[in-house]
């Protein structure tokens, strides 16, 4: 399995994502925003403030050269993971439905965060059990997931909700913390699994998440 972490100007969780993949012996490289993606099996859109998050979070990043052929990539069935700012970019790209608004309390929130695993039938969560509670930290100011009723109905019908917050920190519709596309190969989530990679740093639930991806490619 090969992985690429896209680095936009303003990305700042790129290193953390790289570190966890490297730790799990995945062949991983950084992809600068104006390079093209190649045949990586997993593309990570990392957290941060791409292009300063000016205008709207992720609005400008979606025009980056690295994302030019992201749709073909997705159609081929390769995996795309958007964490935090990456999730925002994926909604701007319309690769995932909905939008991310300012946190309900208007403040940036950095804290540990318990999530309920809702869907284990994805390449990202196959090593979890449905209903597992995992701790992935959150660190965002605009993580308040919004989707209209109709869209929410679709998400539920297609089992696209992957993670829900145990205690909704930001006002997200239906406590949604992470969703996949219909096909299940694109995951966007506000919490940071890559930060939960070491007991010394407060927990390692994130390792199970990335090991799921590795396990998925072993089976394929």
């Amino acid at each position: 399995m090969k992985a690429g972490v896209i680095v936009f100007p303003g990305s700042n969780c790129d290193i953390d994502a790289y570190k966890v993949l490297e730790k799990l012996n995945v062949e991983v490289k950084y992809i600068w925003h104006d390079e093209k993606i190649d045949d990586e099996d997993l593309i990570v859109l990392p957290g941060g403030f791409s292009y300063g998050d000016y205008l709207r979070c992720g609005a400008i990043a979606r025009f980056a050269k690295a994302l030019e052929n992201i749709n073909e990539h997705i159609e081929k069935g390769k995996l795309v993971l958007g964490i935090c700012n990456g999730f925002q970019i994926l909604t701007e790209l319309k690769a995932l439905p909905g939008a991310l608004l300012r946190n309900k309390n208007l403040n940036f929130i950095c804290s540990d965060c318990n999530l309920i695993v809702e869907n284990t039938d994805t390449p990202f969560t196959n090593l979890f059990k449905k209903g597992d509670i995992v701790n992935f930290p959150i660190a965002h100011g605009e993580g308040n997931y919004y989707i209209d009723d109709e869209g929410l109905g679709e998400l539920i019908k297609n089992n696209q909700i992957v993670f829900r917050y145990q205690n909704n920190p930001n006002g997200s519709v239906a406590d949604i913390a992470g969703i996949v596309n219909k096909r299940g190969n694109v995951l966007g989530m506000m919490p940071h699994p890559e930060r939960a990679q070491d007991k010394l740093l407060g927990g390692e639930d994130g390792l199970v998440f990335f090991k799921s991806v590795i396990a998925y490619f072993k089976e394929v």
């Binding site: 400008i60 025009f63 909604t91």
Partner: peptide, 8 residues
């Protein structure tokens, strides 16, 4: 194309 996200 850029300035507005019609979703919201």
């Amino acid at each position: 194309r850029l300035l507005v996200n019609f979703e919201v």
